[in-house]
Every structure is written in structure tokens, then in C-alpha cells.
Design a protein around this nucleic acid. Structure first.
Ligand SMILES: NC(=O)c1ccc[n+]([C@@H]2O[C@H](COP(=O)([O-])OP(=O)(O)OC[C@H]3O[C@@H](n4cnc5c(N)ncnc54)[C@H](O)[C@@H]3O)[C@@H](O)[C@H]2O)c1
Ligand SMILES: NC(=O)c1ccc[n+]([C@@H]2O[C@H](COP(=O)([O-])OP(=O)(O)OC[C@H]3O[C@@H](n4cnc5c(N)ncnc54)[C@H](O)[C@@H]3O)[C@@H](O)[C@H]2O)c1
Lengths: 261, 261
DNA sequence: AAGCGCTTGTGAACGTATGCACAAAGTTGC
DNA sequence: GCAACTTTGTGCATACGTTCACAAGCGCTT
């Protein structure tokens, strides 16, 4: 009954219902945030052009992204802010509150626990866990940090679905395994390592050093371009290169210098 | 009619020298980190298969990525760990140390400043800046936090190239403008907002809420699939929906319920 | 030096994502 | 009620990214 659907045009493109492209999913949070900001300013409707600007994307991309959710929006007018907020929230699964456990209450864990941005966007930090006896018992953001022993118990009894790993790298995999065993199916990993999980569990990794390195790549490229306008692709030296980073060249069966000369 | 068409794909692929695909660049840090871990364990050579596993990607993808840097690696053997570390480091611009300023020494800023992972991977935190008089003067990770006034001075005199924005959202754009004016050409933004910068400056955004929301999307999809095996795409209700998230429906020129009925 | 087994590097096929451009569908004004 | 105007939704072309599969190349053994 409640069907705003135009009836014809049943499955013209990708199945609108199930198959939302991953690239689109990764942008929906940005749209949602831009829309929330607009809503707070009392804006009732917004065009794709305006919303796209606010979210930092092109308007065509925005429209195509939104078209995957359905035909919300009115031609000649734009999108109703509140309605679109609801639709995106629903698509992202934010109509329910997700419970999160943070493991590793060090520098980063403290910051995360104190961060208000989680709570206000559909997530509840339900538990804090750390291995260090000096940290256990401490109260952070209204929660008492519990010990590692309680992890499995806590996760399963509270029905926690998402785990945030903020421990040092070496401990991350073990923590992750225990989280998964206790019922977590989504993991946000801050440790600089790869986490292996069974099928059906998703890991997303956030690595600050990675981000900086990507920035550095572009910095360098820019600097190179600025210095030497149009260089004909120098074949990079390498003699002192290994010395600069690697160590004194242990088992180089075939030294690269050989190949170069 | 729009274009005469390039006739043939003449250049077999992208120019190997300059044009490294963005997707590849974003994975190089992972390879680098995996290689570093191997090096610390004393491994001298590694095959694409092993390295791919360690980095959490497929081996074909890894080989194609590396092939963009050049033909390092020996058929029948694999890649020399140290040599590859150097090549990737060089490509990422990590043979020089990049200077970083962190602006906004709150919860997150403190954690970032204390984080050892920056320093060990080619970056030097050269300055800490905050607007709050209670924070200014404090010593964090061996650096004294300075006031906002000193920002421009500090950035330009120290030759800082990268800025990390860890202030609340509303202040982020202004800080960013000042950083760019002072000479920063790369910005890592933790504030949940879009930063506008002139051409030639790159911004990367890290948003934890976004990451969690993407996790939530997949959680939800999984849950939906588990509950209802093969649902024929229910057309979502919406009557109480607006009430659940939006407010009492202010200026809905055309309520969706109307269109439905 | 010739053969064998192993692994790289890459062409080719496929799939996904982006951006353009415009018809369709709505609103506004008369 | 109709025409002019605005903005969405999407077909289409192109660009980008991933995966497969295998010939070329290398080291080791004989
Ligand atoms: N601080 C940052 O800004 C930052 C940035 C990027 C990544 N990281 C990564 O995040 C992780 C945490 O960083 P940090 O700066 O908070 O480190 P930290 O040393 O300050 O905190 C780590 C915490 O984890 C706890 N811990 C150790 N082993 C544990 C285990 N087995 N189970 C539970 N808890 C355990 C420790 O007791 C400590 O409280 C590290 O992997 C780091 O590389 C940190
Ligand atoms: N804490 C987290 O885990 C976390 C996670 C994701 C994103 N963020 C984002 O990072 C930012 C900082 O988060 P936080 O938790 O550290 O907040 P916070 O309030 O603890 O710290 C903000 C700091 O910025 C300073 N500041 C405010 N205005 C400033 C200005 N104009 N110039 C310089 N400094 C200024 C404040 O004095 C304060 O020290 C926020 O935008 C937040 O949304 C934080």
C-alpha cells in the first residue's frame, strides 16, 4: 500500500532495492552529515547542486547515488531535508542504535570514549575494556573500564555488535578473535596491522600513518613538478639509496647496481 | 558524434613513470608496513603471494600495483624485502622527513601528539597549536603547545608542509585557510566537515562516525538477510518513520504519505 | 648447457564508477 | 489550463580498477 513507486519502470537499472554500490555507501555518511547541518540551520529543502557542494562532491554523482535508494526528491524543487535524512539513515541502518565496545583504553581509546560524535550519530559506547590493571576500574566518559576477562561476557550479554580495536598492533588479532567469538560482526581497527576474520565479519581499518603517507606522495609529486617543470623521467639513482633506508645490504643475491650498470 | 574516438589504445597502459593510479597509491602504505614487519623478522625475500597475504590483498593486485613502480622483483624468486621497502618509500616521498603541525590539542590532538607511529614512519610532529589558553603552554610529547597567533609564523618559519586539523568542526575551515596561507599544502582533517582549499592543496578526511556508519550498513544488511532469508524487498513503511528521526514535519509541501495514498 | 619448476609482469576480459547531457516531471505564474 | 522554467533521474560514453591466466624470465639441478 504505502508505495510511492511509479509502478512502471520496475527494474530499469541495478536492482534498486538490494544492490547499492559500495562507493555510494561510503558517501552516504557525508550526505547525511551535510543534511543534518542543513536541518540544524532550518533548511527545509535542498537541490542536488547545493547538497553536492555541501558534501564536497559533484551534483551528478550525488543524484546517481541517491537514485540508488529510490526516487526521493521532487523535480523542479529538490530534496526534502528531513525526509532524505530519514531515508539515508534507514539505508545505513541507523534507525537502531548500535552498541560498541572499545578495547584498549590508551591515548586513542580515551579520546574515542570521550568523543561525542559517536553517540550523536547512532552509536552507543556500551563498554570499555583494557588489559592494564592500572587502567581497569578507571571511569571514562561515565563508563568503568573492565578487564580483559570480562570481554566475552560483556559483549555477549549486552549484545554488542561492533568492536573498536585500539590496542597495540601485536594484541589486535587476538582481541579481534575474541570479539568475533563473542558475537561481534563488525570491527573498526586502529592498529596498524591486518586483521583476519571469518566470512560474515567486516573489518574496516583506520590508519593515520597511511593517510599521511598518501598526503606525502602527493606533496612530493607536487614538489617534483614545481622544481623541474617537465622532467623526462629520470631513472632514479640507487647506489647510496639502499644505505639511506635499508641496512648494509645483506643477502642481495643480485645487487641492483649490477642490473643498472 | 561527440568525439572522433581515440581509435586504439596505443599506450599499452598508463605511463609507468608518472601515472601511478590513485588506488595503487592508497595501498602502497599497507605494503610498506607489511614489508617492514617482515624485515623486522629478518626475512630477506618474499613472494607476491606471501606479501599479498600479509597485506590483506590479492596477489594479482599486488603484482600489478608494484609493476607501476617498475620491475623490481625476480622471477622465480620474489621480491627483495629491503629493496622493495626502499622503492616504495621513495615513491611515497618518505626519503625525506615531513614536518607536521597539529592544530587543536583536545582529546584527539593529545592522542595524536603522543602517537609514536608518526615519527617512526617518516613524519615529524614539529608544532602543536591550540586556541584555549588553558592548553597553551602545556607540554605534550616534548613539545610546548603554542597559541593561535603563532600559527602562521610557526608554519612558515619551520617550513611545515602538512597540517592536521583536530579542532571542532566550526573552527576547521578557518584553521585550514590559515594553514594553507602559511604554506601548508597537505591537510589531514579529523573534523566532521568539508574543507574547501585552493587547487594544489590536498585534503584527506578521517571521520570515525563515517566508518562506523559504513559498518552499520553492512551489519544491517547481514541482519536483514539472516532474519528473512529471501525477502521480496519490502517497500518500507514511513508513517511513524518521520517521527522517529525527523521532527514534527514542518514544511512538507507535499507529504510523502499523500503520494502513497 | 639444457631442462625444469617457480614466480613475476602484463595483456585481455570483465566489472565498477564517473560525468555528461537531456527527457521527464514537477512547480510557478499568468 | 497552458507555457515557461527548474531540477531530478537516468541512458550512455568513458575512465578506472580488478581479476584471470599465461608467456617470459630466472635460478637450480643435472
Ligand atoms: N594515538 C594515536 O593517535 C593513534 C593513531 C593511529 C593509530 N594508533 C594505534 O592505535 C593503537 C592504540 O594507540 P594508543 O596511542 O592509544 O596506544 P596506548 O599504548 O596509549 O594504548 C594502548 C592501550 O591498549 C591496552 N592494551 C594492550 N594490550 C591489550 C590487550 N591485549 N587487550 C586489551 N588492551 C590492551 C594498553 O593497556 C593501553 O591502555 C595502536 O595500535 C596505535 O598504533 C594510535
Ligand atoms: N575524539 C575523537 O575520538 C574524535 C574522533 C573523530 C573525530 N573527532 C573530531 O576531532 C575534532 C577534535 O575532537 P576532540 O575530541 O579532540 O575535541 P576536543 O573538544 O577535546 O578538542 C578540541 C580542541 O580544539 C581546540 N580549539 C577549538 N577551537 C580552536 C581553534 N579555532 N583553533 C585552535 N584550536 C581550537 C580546543 O581548545 C580543544 O583543545 C572534532 O572535530 C571531532 O569531531 C574526534
Amino acid at each position: 500500500m504505502t508505495r510511492p513507486r511509479p509502478a512502471r519502470l520496475v527494474r530499469s537499472e541495478r536492482a534498486t532495492r538490494d544492490g547499492i554500490p559500495e562507493a555510494t555507501v561510503s558517501r552516504l555518511p557525508f550526505y547525511l552529515q551535510a543534511l543534518t547541518a542543513l536541518a540544524e540551520r532550518g533548511v527545509a529543502t535542498v537541490s542536488s547542486e547545493e547538497l553536492a557542494t555541501a558534501a564536497g562532491v559533484g551534483s551528478a554523482k550525488l543524484r546517481k547515488d541517491l537514485s540508488h535508494l529510490g526516487s526521493y526528491g521532487t523535480r523542479g524543487v529538490g530534496y526534502e531535508v528531513q525526509y532524505l535524512i530519514y531515508q539515508i539513515s534507514r539505508e545505513l541502518g541507523l534507525t537502531q542504535d548500535w552498541k560498541v565496545v572499545i578495547v584498549g583504553i590508551g591515548n586513542l581509546g580515551h579520546a574515542l570514549a570521550n568523543y561525542g560524535g559517536f553517540t550523536s550519530r547512532g552509536f552507543t559506547v556500551a563498554a570499555l575494556v583494557d588489559a592494564d590493571a592500572r587502567v581497569v576500574g578507571e571511569t571514562v566518559a561515565g563508563l568503568t573500564v573492565t578487564g580483559l576477562d570480562s570481554l566475552d561476557q560483556t559483549v555477549s550479554s549486552l549484545g554488542i555488535q561492533i568492536g573498536v580495536v585500539a590496542t597495540p598492533g601485536p594484541a589486535a588479532q587476538e582481541i579481534c578473535d575474541r570479539l568475533v567469538a563473542a558475537g561481534v560482526t563488525g570491527v573498526l581497527n586502529f592498529a596498524p596491522c591486518v586483521l583476519t576474520v571469518p566470512d560474515g565479519v567486516m573489518v574496516r581499518r583506520v590508519d593515520l600513518a597511511t593517510e599521511l603517507q598518501i598526503l606525502a606522495f602527493h606533496e612530493q609529486r607536487r614538489a617534483a613538478g614545481r622544481l623541474a617543470g617537465e622532467m623526462p623521467a629520470e631513472p632514479q639513482d640507487l647506489s647510496e639509496a639502499l644505505g639511506a633506508i635499508g641496512e648494509p645490504r645483506t643477502t642481495l643475491t643480485k645487487s641492483r647496481a649490477e642490473a643498472a650498470g
